[in-house]
Design a protein around this nucleic acid. Sequence first.
DNA 1: GCAGGCTGCTGCAAAAATTGCAGCGGCTTA
DNA 2: TAAGCCGCTGCAATTTTTGCAGCAGCCTGC
Lengths: 302, 302
Amino acid sequence: MRYLETARYIDAIAKAGSIRGAAESLSITSTALNRRILALEDELGVQIFERLAHGVRLSSAGEILISAIRNQISDMERVKSQIADLAGERRGHVTIACSQALLPYFLPMQIARYRKEHPKVTFDLHLRDREAAEKALADYTADLALVFEPVRMAEFHTILRVRQPVHAVMTPDHPLTEKKTVRLSDCLSYPMAVPTAPYGVRHLLDIAALSAQVRLNPVIESDSFEFLRNIAIAENIISFQIPIGLNNVTMAGMMTSRPLDQRDVPAGVLYMGQLRGRTLPVASARFAAQLSVALSELYEVC
Amino acid sequence: MRYLETARYIDAIAKAGSIRGAAESLSITSTALNRRILALEDELGVQIFERLAHGVRLSSAGEILISAIRNQISDMERVKSQIADLAGERRGHVTIACSQALLPYFLPMQIARYRKEHPKVTFDLHLRDREAAEKALADYTADLALVFEPVRMAEFHTILRVRQPVHAVMTPDHPLTEKKTVRLSDCLSYPMAVPTAPYGVRHLLDIAALSAQVRLNPVIESDSFEFLRNIAIAENIISFQIPIGLNNVTMAGMMTSRPLDQRDVPAGVLYMGQLRGRTLPVASARFAAQLSVALSELYEVC
DNA sequence: GCAGGCTGCTGCAAAAATTGCAGCGGCTTA
DNA sequence: TAAGCCGCTGCAATTTTTGCAGCAGCCTGC
């Protein structure tokens, strides 16, 4: 593919951090690549890359350029799949960056459903914390982001958001299951396993604990929701999760959950978003539309 | 400029309607141009142009492509001026499509003001009726559109809108000037000069006349607001215009105006907009920001 | 109905560009 | 201080692009 070839070369260099490195990944010599850059820099009248001892780094002009270039590359992908659509072919590729809570149940099911309709559409799924997910949008490594309690940078454009009240998760024989909703103070008398600091659920719990002037005293902290789920079963202690992360099918027998009283812990919000101003590839746009329907049927839109 | 060269070639062919014609305007041979198209069509696996006896026409795949291509070209212009901005240079180019009412006073003054700050920024101003103005956005011949009572296609993204009540315009000695606001029925007893059908002011008057079950009976119809203004002076008859079209400086002595009672004729709306999803060139974005401030200071935002 | 003029397209050779090789000097690290 | 990166350059080989001339196809006007 010759069209936008130089653009792809620049993208590769920016990613590799060196011309020789990028050249290898592109299967060309560093000479050719080097001279392309020099030619483009000559055309623009500005250095795109700063030359360092160990490679190159985007200059401030390069930062501006790379964003446009990635947009162009992604745009051409979209055009190609739109053109393929004209011939009735529904092919394409969707890249998603999402929080852990989406992994056990919701996204696998949604992707399976989508791929049943459009088997030629492929998916890339990247697990990213809320900050990294937004960065992935900005550098075009993800078309869509599904994030719980995101940082919400200026470039994040919200497609849909739904309420996700925090639930306490425990084995069905746990004393806490007797109530419909549980108070934070009820939980404190039991050992608990909680996510580490950067996660949305922990964030909400911390704020709640602070305002109630209590301390959480977790016996287990982990950055893996899967581990938290399993340790909670194994040790018969309580953990916390949002509804979308509760796999109501496979966990039916093993675990159960109760929402925390919202006077103690306010409901969190799950955001689906994309990069502001970007036109998504057709497949991604269609998948986002499907997710919008599914999310708004299952949860309260806000 | 080699980067996006093929893109510019395709744009030229689409505009010229023939390869040979475009080749001439690009100062290359038709052979070179022809082969570029063939190569790109080969890459994409689709015909971009339909071959006709008297030239070429974009195929449906080509229509999809050309939009992306024009976006890329415009994007590179924006990048270049952003990069120039880094060096402190404020250069760039702004293209505007607007209704007639903007011509006599508002835009000349605003552009002059902007160019005083940024003398290196150049402007293109195209007079376009409300439908053509939106088309100009879609094919990237205009960055900004200022339209009174626009058709508002899906691709039109509103930046700002302000209320523009229709005014009756007349010489200062006209009997109608006695009242603060005039009723439509008052006007009917005087000869009047009105714009032709496609214009917003006429549209509003027609609707008003219809609902009041009266007839306008204009003695003069014209598609030139300038002519309407002059004939109204020369013949001492009434005409109609929106506030932004009333040049309160030069017309001070010659003419005066009174708003029509809004029970008869509802206020129209002036829209400033751009192409949805497009990132404007820096200069255009800055100029739009200036216009937003000016418009919202002068008129009622709605 | 048949030139004349326009179109896009192609074979071939010339021109221009891109590329690869080898090697230079600069920098960091061991 | 030596080894190992890095980006960059002169030169030659290679590839790509371009221009010329000429082809067939289509429409228009005489």
